[in-house]
Simulated assay, not measured.
Amino acid sequence: MTHADDTIRVLIPLKVRKKNGRPKILPPADYLPSEDQTQDPHILRAIGRAWSWRRQLETGAASTIQDIAAAEKVSDRFVSRMMRFAYLSPEVLDNLVIRRVPLALSLNDLVAVADRPWAEQMDMVFELPET
């Protein structure tokens, strides 16, 4: 048995609103995410899609980029371009996805960086402080 003294109650002031028929949890109006936890959701989504598509090709769930494009209802050129995110260096991915370091360039420019050698990517993607 638990007593009233053993109970810890945590109140988190969130609002639930419907968006496109689905419930969406909203943070309190005065909530400001810390800088280290912010990241453009478009970047995270693009990286996630690229890895999903890469996995489909590697496991045989999809035979070609054209198969993925047809399933996703996008052009094969788009899939091919976005797949490059799956080949970013592990260090860049760690900084983008885990540490949430903001980019110093646009999403379109990041696609071009993925073609570069891993050793060059960090300096191109993030504005590193000069030492």
Rank of each mutant, 00 (worst) to 15 (best):
R9F: 03
S89D: 01
R99Q: 11
A29S: 14
R45F: 07
S75T: 15
P129I: 09
A62R: 15
N95T: 01
A46P: 02
E58W: 06
Q121S: 02
Q66L: 11
F126E: 00
T7I: 15
A61P: 10
P27S: 11
V92Y: 04
K73G: 09
R116Y: 00
L44F: 07
A104L: 03
E58N: 10
R84S: 13
R9V: 12
N95V: 04
E35I: 13
A71F: 02
L96N: 05
L57H: 07
L11F: 13
P28K: 15
G60A: 06
S34H: 12
R77M: 07
P129S: 08
V79Y: 02
S63G: 15
I25Y: 10
G60R: 15
L11A: 05
A86L: 11
M82E: 06
G21C: 06
R99K: 15
L32M: 09
D30F: 12
I65G: 00
P23G: 11
V10H: 14
A119N: 05
S75K: 07
K73Y: 02
L57D: 06
L128N: 10
Q121R: 10
F85T: 06
P28E: 12
L32C: 07
T131L: 09
I98R: 13
D109P: 05
H3C: 03
V74T: 15
T59P: 09
P33G: 04
A86Q: 09
M124C: 01
Y87C: 02
I47P: 00
Y31V: 09
Q121F: 04
N108G: 05
W51V: 10
A119H: 08
N20W: 08
W118Q: 07
R116E: 15
W118D: 14
V113I: 13
D94C: 01
L93G: 00
I8S: 03
P117E: 03
T2C: 10
S75I: 12
D109T: 13
L105E: 10
P90D: 14
A114P: 00
L107I: 01
N95I: 02
P23S: 12
A104Y: 01
G48Q: 04
A71M: 13
H42V: 05
G60M: 07
H42C: 06
L128A: 03
T64S: 08
D109H: 14
L110K: 03
I25W: 14
I47H: 02
L105C: 11
I68R: 02
I98Y: 08
V111P: 01
E72N: 05
F78L: 12
I68G: 00
V92T: 02
L103C: 06
I25D: 06
V79D: 00
V101A: 04
M82L: 15
